[in-house]
Amino acid sequence: MIMKAAVVEAEKGRSLWQDAFQRLLKNKMAVIGFCYLIVQASLAVLAPWIASFPFEETDLLLGAVAPDSVHYFGTDALGRDMFTRVLHGARISLMVGILATAVSLAIGVLYGSISGYMGGRVDNIMMRLLEILYALPFTFFVIILMVLFGRNIYLLFIALGAIQWLTMARIVRGQVVSLKKMEYVDAARSMGVGHVRIIASHLIPNVLGTVIVYVTLTVPNVILEEAFLSFLGLGVQEPMASWGTLISDGVGAMQTYPWMLIIPCASLMLTLLALNFLGDGLRDALDPQASKD
């Protein structure tokens, strides 16, 4: 069917999503945060081409030098270029952030929406189970996983994601419980639409706003947790580096080579700040009611 595109377009109203996007653009901090993240992410992706040294190459004769025109961020005690290592660290840290969040998103949304939609006894059992999992100390859980399956960076992603989904599931469940009483869900049900379809095409798209906001807050959480695990020596293995391992190395050199601590800390902090600004902005944009107070 051929249509006169121009006419239809003129009549088209702005969707809720477009509204939200407009509101987001008005939030300066969120936009700055977003731009910073884009730059940081592309630097991380392009690290092997941008960095002037291989990240594992040591230069023992050089040792630790302060930032200069050759080594922009200085070098560590073994003469490895910090600029290179911070960029490569960003690769690991951001990858952990994104992948672990994706894992938590997948499990959390599925679990939460099933629990909320089914209600009754199923909901009760699923939520009690969740509470039991909440009670498990997360560090022990990750350490046990590491000991059982050996050290593996992908396992780390999964382990971190497997812990983050708990809160996600609760949020989604709460939303679904209130959404499922809506008329459009009743309508779908009375037309004989199956449970799976109702969840997939009616409920999940409607909780997405809340979920997206929570995701932007989960990413920094996961990055911090990876940093924490690496700090304990459970994260990535040398000579690879994440921001966590770089900071952990830097703490020991605080008095002697302060740049080894300051630079990775600053990178981590700026990224977390940017993510938080973006998250805040998204929340205000997607849920204008909440931001009025």
Binding site: E56, E57, T58, L78, R151, G233, Q237, E238, P239
Partner: peptide, 19 residues
């Protein structure tokens, strides 16, 4: 790390570190 690099640089031998 230093020894891992020395073996890699001097001989091309790959070494994995485990702590």
């Amino acid at each position: 790390i230093a020894i891992q690099q020395m073996w890699n640089k001097n001989l091309g031998v790959e070494v994995e570190l485990f702590n």
